[in-house]
């Protein structure tokens, strides 16, 4: 489904601020796999998703989605196949347009942008049904501007917008981090439900180890631009938050020691 072959991404190459954000990383996802991604700050998690989405272009390596090479595909093209939810709810919606109009734009994602009416009567019914699934009462507010709804509501809406046309791949970058705990939990549950029901191949970054183990079918841990842990199946089921933290400490320390060896040479 998704095949990432030894990609590398360096920021500000050649300057004193040079930063290798992704270092020779490879990863293969199966159809319908739901991967949670954890790792310390600056590990390269967001950069990885940005490279896949085409927002950044990798310096080395290849990215294939369903057999299509998307390595150099501009974002607006690869986004035909990829759905993204950002942490900032404002990033996912057009605030000065109505809820219905926002959904309509999402629904027209894989259709030509021509002079057909933006919203049809039949669309309205479908939007209403979809909105009633997220249980935030938005189905009765179709003609209100998005600027009038809360951050949590618009994030839930973004999730809906990104899956209303089933994407080949869904990328979630700490999408619930800015919400208050109650809404965050709800949006997370919603995420799980939608992904499961539609069987969408998904990558979700989270800082919450519990969430990382609870959701999805596979967990990877990143550190300094590489994947240092990749668990699924039984191994993952037996994993607890404590053992995950321990494992992370060990792995990360191991790297540190390697660094020391390099430096002392």
């Amino acid at each position: 489904m998704l095949e990432i072959r030894s990609i590398k991404k360096v920021f500000e190459a050649g300057s004193i601020n040079e930063k290798i954000a992704i270092n020779n990383l490879s990863l293969t996802l199966e159809e319908g796999e739901f991967v949670t991604i954890i790792g310390d700050n600056g590990a390269g998690k967001s950069t990885l998703l940005n490279c896949i989405a085409g927002e950044y272009i990798v310096d080395e390596g290849r990215i294939l989605l369903d057999g299509i090479d998307i390595t150099y595909m501009p974002e607006y093209k690869s986004s035909q196949y990829i759905g993204r939810v950002f942490q900032d709810p404002l990033k996912g919606t057009a605030y000065d347009m109505t809820i219905a109009e926002n959904l309509a734009i999402a629904y027209a994602k894989d259709k030509p942008k021509n002079l057909q009416p933006g919203i049809r009567k039949s669309d309205i019914k479908m939007f209403r049904e979809k909105l009633s699934l997220i249980q935030l009462g938005l189905e009765d507010r179709l003609n209100q501007k998005v600027s009038l709804i809360s951050g949590g509501q618009s994030l839930a809406m973004t999730l809906l917008m990104d899956t209303i046309v089933k994407p080949k791949l869904l990328l979630l970058d700490e999408h619930i981090a800015a919400l208050d705990p109650k809404i965050a939990k709800k949006v997370l549950q919603l995420t799980g439900e939608i992904v499961e029901k539609e069987k969408i191949t998904t990558m979700m970054i989270t800082h919450n180890m519990k969430v990382a183990l609870e959701y999805g079918s596979r967990t990877i841990m990143m550190h300094e631009g590489q994947i240092i842990l990749d668990i699924k199946g039984e191994e993952r089921e037996e994993m607890t938050v404590e053992s995950l933290i321990n494992l992370f400490g060990k792995k990360a320390k191991h790297d540190l020691e390697n660094d020391r060896i390099l430096l002392s040479r």
Partner: peptide, 28 residues
């Protein structure tokens, strides 16, 4: 009526949020 078409929608959304318009498959 133009601003109420599919094309008109993405045009209007561009000023609000060009990130979203690109993320939803339109070249801003």
């Amino acid at each position: 009526f133009f601003l109420k078409t599919r094309l008109g929608f993405v045009l209007r959304a561009t000023g609000d949020n060009h990130v979203m318009v690109r993320a939803l498959g339109t070249n801003t």
